[in-house]
Write a protein that binds this DNA or RNA. Structure first.
Lengths: 187, 187
DNA sequence: ATATTACCGGAGTGGCACTCCGCTAAAAAC
DNA sequence: GTTTTTAGCGGAGTGCCACTCCGGTAATAT
C-alpha cells in the first residue's frame, strides 16, 4: 500500500504529485492547497492523487515528513555534541522554523500528536522521544525545572508557532519563545 | 444595518437564529456548526440567516460578544477592586475559559485580533485595552517583568487555550498557564 | 502478438460558504 | 376596512471543497 508502486508511470506520477504539493504548500499554505489543485498542478486526474494518498493528511505527511525526521536527527546530534549552553533553545527554534515553513501546519501537528496511528502521528511521537532526551539533559545541566516534560515543552513551542502563523507581522515568535524559556527555568 | 430590524417577524427570526447558533456551538463547536445547520435549526431559510449576518464571523461575534464584553468588565472590576495577589492570573483563567467555551474559537480570535474592522476585531481591541490596565498594575505591584505588554500576554494565553482545545484530554491548560506565568515574572 | 491487470482520467456525490430573486405578508396610507 | 407599498422571506442556484467510483487504456508479463 505504502510501498513503491510497481508500474513506472505510477512511480512517476507519485513523484510529480509530491513535487506539486510542495510547490503549492509553499505558495498558498498547507491548509489552502486543495487536493484538486495539487492534482491539476501535477498534470494528473484527481482520482490518481486519491489513489496514491488516502487523504489530505497523508499528502502533508509525505511533504513535511523528511523535515520532521530532520528534527529528530538534530535532537540526536545536539545530544551527542559538545553541548552548547542553549542547545534546547536551538532545537525549539528549529521546531518553530519547521512548523512555520508552510502555513497551516501547526493545527496538523497538534491533531496528529493526538492519534498516533495517523501517518504524521507516528513521526510526531518519534520527535517527542527525541525531545525527551534533550529535556533530560537540560534538566541534568540545571537549565530547566525538574518537573518539565518534553510533551509540555513541545506543546508550548507549538503554541508559539501557532501564534506566529496566525497573527500578522511583526513576527513575535522569538520574543514569545524567550518568555516561554524564562518560564521553564529552574526555580 | 446592525440596528434592530423594523418588522416583528424579522426581530423574531434574528433572536431564533442567535439561539440556534448558541445551541449548535455548544453541541458541535463553533467551527463545525455550518450556516445551513444554524438556519435549519432556527426554522428559517438559509437566505434569512445570510441577510441578518453578512458572514459566519458575524454570527460568532453575536454569540460570543456578550461574554467577550464580560472579560473587559471583569478586568475593570479587578482593577478597581482590593487587588488580590493573583488578579492577573485570575483574569487569564477567565480568558481561557471563555475561549474554550466553544471549540474552534481560538482561531477566530487570533484572526480577529488582526483586522480590527471585523465585528469581533473591535471587541478584541477593547479586551486588549482592558488587559493593558491589568498588566500595568501587575507591573507596578512587581508581579510581572517591566517589558511585558498586554498584547504579548494575550497571545500567550490564547495560545494555551488553543493547545487546550486542539489536543485531547487530559487537560493541560492549568499547567501550561503556570509555566507561562513563571515566564513573565520579573527577573 | 496476445493476455492480463495495474493504473489512469474524470464524472459524480454530498456538503460547504455564500448569492440572488420571485413572492408573501407585515406595515403604512387612505 | 381596503388598498398600496416594501421589508423580509424561502429556497434554488453557484462554485468550491474533500472524497468515491468505474470504464477504458496502456504498461507489463507471457
Amino acid at each position: 500500500m505504502s510501498g513503491e508502486p510497481k508500474r513506472s508511470d505510477a512511480r512517476r506520477n507519485r513523484a510529480r504529485l509530491v513535487e506539486a504539493a510542495e510547490a503549492l504548500f509553499d505558495e498558498v499554505g498547507a491548509d489552502a492547497a486543495s487536493m484538486n489543485d495539487i492534482a491539476r498542478r501535477a498534470g494528473v486526474g484527481p482520482g490518481t492523487l486519491w489513489r496514491h494518498f488516502p487523504d489530505k493528511g497523508a499528502v502533508t505527511a509525505e511533504v513535511v515528513g523528511q523535515s520532521l525526521d530532520g528534527l529528530a536527527t538534530l535532537a540526536a546530534e545536539l545530544l551527542e555534541g559538545p553541548g552548547t549552553r542553549d542547545f534546547l533553545r536551538q532545537w525549539a527554534s528549529a521546531l518553530i522554523r519547521h512548523i512555520t515553513r508552510y502555513r497551516g501546519l501547526a493545527a496538523s501537528y497538534a491533531q496528529a500528536a493526538g492519534n498516533a496511528d495517523s501517518p504524521l502521528g507516528a513521526r510526531c511521537h518519534a520527535v517527542e522521544e527525541a525531545a525527551a532526551g534533550l529535556v533530560r539533559r537540560a534538566r541534568e545541566a540545571g537549565q530547566v525545572r525538574a518537573d518539565l516534560t518534553a510533551s509540555e515543552l513541545i506543546r508550548l513551542v507549538t503554541a508559539v508557532a501557532w501564534v506566529e502563523e496566525t497573527t500578522p507581522p511583526p513576527d513575535t515568535a522569538g520574543r514569545l519563545l524567550d518568555l516561554v524559556f524564562e518560564g521553564v527555568r529552574p526555580r
